[in-house]
């Protein structure tokens, strides 16, 4: 609540309210972990219930999925670079790396939407079978998170440009960084359990 500034800490931790926000966001990520865990559990229960519809072997193509993975993993790396620039108090570097991150993220979302459209053209919609329902909802939830992240980060970039690096904008940037890395981790699980395990198996 108090506006006291403690300058011995990193910029994003300097005000009391920032410290509260960051802790709150960690707890929110805890809730997000439960949310995705539930979706994963749902998927693993329904993953073999094809109801006569297409199976993973009929649908998945490794090339596109690998590209998606590389895009998102790289974006997580550039997001790390952005936070690194923030610590060096280099606003322009921060903004530049954030924009790269978002472009990579947008590339991921574009690839994913293309993938989904292909599936739908092959007659695999979320109404087709329990397997596809759980597949589309799990991946769709992740994709929606990434899209929301892009929109949110755009807002923060605008604020960075307009207001410069302040304790508040630094905190906001730091939090979106946490969010972005979290989504990356979720994708690693999706890649492993939804794609890799099904294509090998």
């Amino acid at each position: 609540m108090s506006a006291n500034v403690n300058t011995s800490l990193p910029l994003e931790y300097q005000t009391e309210q920032s410290r509260l926000n960051i802790l709150g966001f960690w707890i929110f990520l805890g809730a997000e972990i439960v949310l995705f865990a539930t979706l994963f559990a749902t998927y693993s229960v329904l993953k073999a219930r094809y109801a006569g519809g297409p199976t993973p072997n009929d649908l998945f193509e490794i090339k596109g999925i690998l590209t998606e993975t590389i895009l998102l993993l790289t974006s997580s790396f550039t997001c790390g670079l952005a936070i690194f620039e923030m610590r060096r108090n280099n606003r322009n570097g921060l903004v530049a790396w954030m924009i790269v991150t978002l472009l990579l993220g947008a590339g991921f979302v574009f690839m994913e939407i293309t993938e989904f459209i292909n599936y739908v053209h092959e007659g695999a919609t979320m109404q087709t079978s329990a397997f596809l329902s759980s597949f589309f909802v799990l991946l769709g939830t992740h994709g929606l998170h990434v899209s929301m992240g892009i929109g949110w980060a755009t807002m923060i970039i605008i604020q960075l440009i307009r207001r410069g690096l302040t304790p508040t904008t630094a905190r906001k940037t730091f939090i979106i960084g946490l969010y972005w890395h979290f989504l990356d981790v979720v994708w690693i699980f999706i890649f492993t359990f939804v794609y890799l395990a099904r294509m090998v198996g």
């Binding site: 229960v45 329904l46 979320m126 109404q127 079978s129 329990a130 909802v137």
Partner: peptide
């Protein structure tokens, strides 16, 4: 999703699983 968009999470048709 099941009720408004016709998915099959908990339905008895389409491979859904009510006990979930």
């Amino acid at each position: 999703f099941d009720r408004i968009f016709g998915t099959h999470f908990f339905t008895i048709s389409g491979g859904g699983m009510d006990m979930m």
